[in-house]
Amino acid sequence: MIGALALAVGLAVGVVLNPTAPSWLDPYLPIAVVAALDAVFGGLRAALEKVFDDKVFVVSFISNVLVAALVVFIGDKLGVGGQLSTAVVVVFGIRIFANAAAIRRQVFKA
């Protein structure tokens, strides 16, 4: 509950402050957001299955973001940044869908 509130606060602060990301962050920010969304959906699923753990969430969130950014960074250095960005988005997209399906089964029992 407070988590949703925190998310809303972050969104509100972003809207109000109207920040612009530094340009070196541009390739990584969307990837990091997708990775973080995966962690959030995983956490939501765990909460519904009554196995949510704060530490696991924090570690998975941070490691997801860092690994995703690292993969894209290495990809950029190798000249395949675009393809690896796509790969990261596809992988996290699949995981988000899987978690969303689990959440749906929990909530609607279907």
Binding site: L11, G14, P19
Partner: peptide, 22 residues
């Protein structure tokens, strides 16, 4: 750890708006 969860969620919300705007 619970506070860290909230902070991370707030950071995520912030990051979403930043990347949407960028």
């Amino acid at each position: 750890a619970r506070v860290a969860v909230w902070v991370l969620l707030a950071v995520l919300g912030f990051g979403i708006t930043v990347s949407v705007r960028a």
